[in-house]
Structure formats: C-alpha cells, structure tokens
Amino acid sequence: MRLLFFILVILCLVAGCDNQDGNIQPIANDKFLIIAHRGASAFAPEHTMIAYEIAHEADVDYIEIDLQMTKDGVLVAMHDEKVDRTTNGTGFVKEYTLEELKQLNAGKWFNEEYPGLANREFEQEEVPTLEEIFMHFGDDVNYYIELKSPRIYKGMEEELFALLKKYDLIRETQDLPKVIVESFNEDSLTNFHALGPALPLIQLFSFKEKATLSHSDYKRLQTYASGIGVNIKSVDQDFIHDAQLNGLQVHLYSIKNEIDVKNAFRLDVNGVFIDNPTFGEHLPQEES
C-alpha cells in the first residue's frame, strides 16, 4: 500500500495536480530524503565547515544552511540572529562586519556544552560564509538553504540568487535538485520565486497544535512552493497525505533520535531534517 501511495503522489507531482503555476519545480523523487540539520550538528558545532564535512561523509542527501547577513552584506551560515549562543561574541550578526565576525570562535561553545564530544579541532572553527561553503563543496553536495531572517536583511534574496548563479547551482538535474530554498517567511519565498522560478521552494510552518491547512492555503502554496516543512509533533498521516495529494512534498523537522526517523518514514513523509545523519542508515525496507 505504501508503494502504491507513493506512485500516486509521484504521478500527482509530475502532473502538477491543481498547481496553477507552470513554473513550479516539483521534487519528483520517491527517495526518503535525509537533510543534515545545520550540518551534522549532533557531532560537531552547528553551521561550521567540520559539521558539513561530517554530514558529507555520512552521504546525506542535503546539507542544511541557515543564513544571516553581516553589516557589510555578506551571507553567513548561522541559525540565530545573534551570535551569543554559538560563538564567544555578543550581539546581532547584522552589527558585525565580516572581518569582525571572523574573529569569533564558532566551536568552543560546543566543547563546553557537550564535553563527551569535545574536540580541540572544533576550537579552530570560525563562522563560514555561504560563498566559502560553495567554494569548498562545489557540486559534491546538495544544498538546502534557509532564508532565516529576511525581514531584517534588505536584499537577502538577491544576494543568495547572485551567489547561486555565480557557482552555477541554478540548473535542472535528472536526479535531486542541487539546491532547495526554504523559509518561514512567505513574502521572501514569493520574492525569491520571481527571481529564480527554476528553484524548488519549501514553505516552513511551526504549528503549536495539530497541523492543518485549508483549501485556500493550498491554492496559495501552489503558486510558489514545491513542498512544506513542518514540526514533527504536529502532524499525522492524514495531513501528510493531503499535502502530498495537493502537489507538495512534506519534510519534517527536527528529528532527534532513530525512533523519530522510523516514525517519520512510516508516516510517508518525503524527508527529515536530522541532527545525526547516521540514523537514516537502517530505515525499514519498502513494503511490497
């Protein structure tokens, strides 16, 4: 039954379902996607080169990169708007020039918070720019990029689009898309869709109670999004199937243990954001 449902979903995605915008890029792949949440953040300081390297070595489908922007307009990998939690600095990213941000230690906090995983090499890590990540990994990985705080960063979408063009990452592929862009901010995604309609977009949601979307919600999403990202505690299989039959993939965040991975797989979702990418190595086999 599970295989039959996925066949129906794939046919729906390829055909576009009720999608009113012919420019929407479907993610027409039946593979259960493993997305390394902030890199391999269970093993190394999040959003550092070493965290991305570990994720790459684990052969994940995507490395996730949250974006903030410096005072001088450079896109950098960091989850929070402030540097306090993951560096030895204080204040907002937007108050730092790149040169100033590069003086901060981006790994020592991890050793202090997780002494059992401490590694002296982590204390050599700095905050990477998005361009440095592209230069380092090139075509060797797929990128899942979040426009994290676009409301406070003028020109963030344009800067991301320019970098993707510079490194030839905006292109159709026979396999998985090279780049997926996500955000909680709908305006940012619709603006980005106008810039790069060839890129699949994921609208993020955080539901405090049971996840639900109306018919009008789906109609709106179908004008720009290829899928949705939803917090795992809020969903059930009915919601997931409804979204998929409306032409949207469903990716769940954030997976903290192997049981959650297997539960997500049984719910028929299309992928998971996971701190420990090795949890995806022993998924149940497809049912016949």
Results as ranks from 00 to 15, higher is better:
191 N>R: 15
172 E>C: 02
223 T>C: 02
164 L>K: 08
158 E>W: 01
172 E>R: 07
211 A>R: 01
206 S>R: 02
228 I>V: 15
157 E>N: 09
190 T>Q: 14
158 E>G: 05
227 G>F: 06
203 Q>A: 13
206 S>E: 03
163 L>W: 04
210 K>S: 05
160 L>D: 04
178 K>P: 03
206 S>F: 00
228 I>P: 12
185 N>P: 10
226 S>R: 03
172 E>K: 10
214 S>A: 13
203 Q>R: 15
167 Y>L: 15
224 Y>K: 10
227 G>L: 08
227 G>I: 02
170 I>Y: 00
212 T>H: 01
158 E>C: 12
201 L>M: 08
225 A>Y: 15
199 L>Q: 03
206 S>H: 11
188 S>G: 13
206 S>M: 08
183 S>H: 11
188 S>Q: 13
216 S>R: 10
211 A>Y: 06
192 F>H: 00
180 I>W: 04
212 T>E: 02
162 A>F: 01
196 G>M: 11
196 G>Y: 03
194 A>Q: 15
159 E>P: 02
215 H>M: 04
206 S>V: 07
219 K>D: 12
212 T>W: 00
229 G>E: 09
162 A>T: 11
159 E>A: 14
182 E>M: 09
162 A>L: 10
177 P>H: 08
156 M>Y: 09
161 F>R: 04
219 K>G: 03
164 L>A: 04
189 L>V: 08
163 L>F: 05
211 A>M: 09
225 A>W: 09
210 K>V: 02
213 L>R: 02
185 N>C: 13
226 S>Y: 14
209 E>N: 12
211 A>V: 00
224 Y>T: 10
200 P>A: 02
198 A>R: 00
211 A>C: 00
180 I>P: 01
173 T>P: 08
215 H>Q: 13
194 A>Y: 07
179 V>C: 10
224 Y>W: 13
181 V>M: 00
191 N>Q: 12
168 D>T: 00
174 Q>K: 15
178 K>S: 04
174 Q>F: 07
207 F>M: 01
222 Q>T: 04
201 L>I: 13
173 T>W: 06
177 P>Y: 00
174 Q>L: 08
223 T>M: 03
229 G>D: 06
205 F>M: 06
158 E>S: 07
207 F>W: 01
228 I>D: 12
155 G>Y: 11
173 T>L: 04
188 S>T: 04
172 E>G: 08
186 E>V: 13
174 Q>R: 10
228 I>Y: 14
207 F>T: 01
190 T>V: 14
161 F>T: 11
173 T>D: 08
163 L>H: 01
184 F>Q: 02
175 D>K: 14
157 E>L: 09
196 G>A: 15
215 H>F: 10
183 S>K: 04
187 D>E: 15
164 L>T: 12
165 K>T: 06
